[in-house]
Design a protein around this nucleic acid. Structure first.
Lengths: 154, 154
DNA sequence: ATAGTACTGAGACTGAGTCTCATTATAGTA
DNA sequence: TACTATAATGAGACTCAGTCTCAGTACTAT
C-alpha cells in the first residue's frame, strides 16, 4: 500500500526527452519559461495552484505562467484539476507519473497524491467502463478524490 | 446495474420538510427564492451550472441565485462540484439523493449522474479510507468522476 | 545577414462569483 | 391592526483568476 513501493527511480533525462517530444509534436519549443513551469511541478511532486507556481518561480510573469500551463496541457504534459476551493491546480499528466488519486482538504484546499494498489484500479475501471458505455460515454480516464481534512486542519 | 433499480420513489413532501429543517437549523427561512433554486435542482436531476439555473429561472437575479447557492451549501442542502471547464456545477447534497458519481464530458462540460452497485462502493471506501488515514486525513466522502466524451460530442 | 516564425512580458480585458446597500417581506408581540 | 426587529431581496459595483493583445525579443533556417 506504500505509494512508492515498486516505483521505478525517476529518470530525469528520459522525462525531459518526453516533454520535449510532446512539445515539438505540437509545434512548440522547450523553452526556458516552459521548462520553468514543468520543473516546478516535478520538484514539488504535488498539484500546484497558480500562486504556488508564483512562489516557486518569482520571476515568471503571471500571464506567461498561465500561457505555459495552457500550452503544456495542449501538448499533453500537464493536466488541470479542480479542488474544493475556487483555484485550479496543475499537475503532470497521468502517463508522466504514476497513476494516482487525490486527498483534497475541504478546509485549506491542499491536494496530496495517493496511489491505490493495482488490483483496485482494475476493479474500478471494469465497473465504471460498463456504467459509462451504457450512457453512451467514451471513457478517457477517471479521477477519484477523497474529500476530508488534512492533519493540520483537523 | 440499472441506476434506479431499487430506489425509493421520490417523496416530495418529506424532501421539502428536510430542506426546511436544515435551513431553519442554520437560522434561515425557506423562502421563494431559495425554493426556486432547490426546485430547479430537483426538476433537472442533474448538476447545474449558474447559466443552467438562469435559463430555468429567468426571473431570478444572478446575485440572488449565487447567494442562495451559498446559503444552501452552508445548510447542507446543496454541494458545489467542479467540471473540467471553468464553471462550477451545483447539485443536491449527497444524503438528499442517492449516492452517485459523475460522467463528465471533457468536450462540452456536461455532467451526468451514474450509480454503481452498492458492493462497488463498499470496496472502494475500504481501500480509500486506509490510504487516507495513513496520510493523516480524516475522510468525509469521495468523488469519482469518469472523464470522457458524451454521445453527442464523440 | 535576413526573413520568417515562435516566444515573451506588460498590461488591458473578461466574466464568474462576491459584496454592499437601500428597500421589502416576514415573524413575533401587544 | 400597528409596531419592531430581523431576515430576505434586487440592483449594481466590485474583485480577481484567467485570457487576450500587442509590441518587442529570441530562435531557426537558409
Amino acid at each position: 500500500m506504500k505509494a512508492s513501493a515498486d516505483r521505478a527511480p525517476f529518470d530525469r533525462a528520459a522525462f525531459d526527452r518526453t516533454v520535449r517530444e510532446r512539445l515539438e509534436r505540437s509545434g512548440r519549443r522547450y523553452t526556458g519559461g516552459r521548462r520553468s513551469v514543468v520543473e516546478a511541478l516535478v520538484e514539488s511532486g504535488h498539484p500546484l495552484s497558480i500562486s504556488d507556481i508564483e512562489k516557486l518561480r518569482p520571476g515568471l510573469p503571471r500571464s506567461s505562467a498561465y500561457r505555459h500551463l495552457v500550452e503544456l496541457q495542449q501538448a499533453g504534459i500537464v493536466r488541470r484539476l479542480s479542488a474544493e476551493d475556487e483555484f485550479s491546480r496543475y499537475e503532470l499528466a497521468e502517463d508522466l507519473t504514476e497513476h494516482h488519486h487525490h486527498l483534497v482538504c475541504v478546509s485549506c484546499g491542499r491536494v496530496v497524491d495517493v496511489t491505490p494498489p493495482k488490483s483496485f484500479e482494475i476493479a474500478v475501471t471494469e465497473v465504471l467502463d460498463e456504467l459509462a458505455t451504457s450512457e453512451g460515454f467514451t471513457v478517457q480516464g477517471h479521477r477519484l478524490d477523497l474529500l476530508g481534512r488534512c492533519a493540520s486542519c483537523s
